[in-house]
Computed example of a mutant assay.
Amino acid sequence: MNRFLPYFFSIIPLSSLSIGTLAMASPTQETSKIQLAQKLNCNNAQTQVEINQCAQISYQNADKKLNQVYQKLVPTLSSSSKKKLITAQQAWIKFRDASCEFERSQYEGGTIAPSIYFGCLEKTTQQRTQQLQEYLNSDR
């Protein structure tokens, strides 16, 4: 019997570790809320999840600016030009999304894929914003 005690006590710490690991691997709704409540610092993102979230936020900000410039440009155009801009913008959105999907596909399955995708969306959106801003600033 005494020779089984060291074996028994060596199992206890291992089993408590595995239970702790299981508890951490399946976050509860409470821990999810706590994580969401933490402020995201995009100037010092520490994890790939944070980097991905920051890339998404950067894209969303670029998209807001694009929409602001677009909304300023539309009223300055004739009816015919408005229709052409709408058609061009719809085609551009399809191109942007397909192009960024292609860029992301090179990292398919990797944790960096969302960051690559949102970075592409942001860069392409900023370029389009600049184009629309130039139309807005030109003397037509």
Rank of each mutant, 00 (worst) to 15 (best):
T28C: 13
F95E: 15
T31M: 10
T21C: 06
L17M: 13
P75K: 00
G110H: 08
F4P: 07
V74F: 04
E50C: 10
L17V: 10
N61M: 05
S80P: 00
C42Y: 06
P27L: 04
T124N: 06
K82S: 10
T28E: 04
A113K: 11
K33V: 14
F9Y: 14
W92R: 08
D97Y: 05
A91V: 02
L66W: 01
Y117P: 03
S81Y: 04
I12N: 09
G20E: 02
L17S: 12
I86W: 06
G119V: 08
N2S: 12
A62Q: 02
D139C: 00
M1L: 10
L36D: 10
Q130K: 12
N43V: 06
G110R: 08
T129E: 05
A37F: 00
A113H: 06
T21W: 10
N41W: 05
S105A: 11
R96W: 03
R96K: 14
C120Q: 03
M1V: 11
K33P: 01
A88D: 13
R104F: 03
Q133T: 15
R128K: 15
G119M: 06
I51K: 15
L136D: 10
P114M: 02
S10A: 13
Q89Y: 02
I86Q: 15
E30W: 05
Q130F: 06
V69Q: 04
Q133Y: 10
L85M: 14
C42S: 07
K64D: 08
R128G: 15
Y59I: 03
R140S: 05
E50R: 12
M1R: 09
S10Q: 12
T28S: 15
I116R: 06
P13C: 11
Y107F: 14
P114W: 01
I112S: 04
S32A: 15
S79Q: 09
L36Y: 05
S79W: 01
G20A: 11
E101M: 03
Y59F: 14
V74H: 00
R96L: 05
S81L: 04
Y135N: 13
I19V: 11
I34K: 10
N44Q: 14
S78Q: 00
A25E: 08
Y135Q: 09
P6F: 08
F118V: 07
C100D: 10
Q56N: 09
I57C: 10
N52W: 05
Q106H: 09
L36P: 01
I11K: 09
S99L: 04
Q90N: 12
R104A: 12
I19L: 13
P13I: 07
T47G: 14
K33T: 11
Q131N: 15
I112Y: 05
A55G: 13
E101A: 07
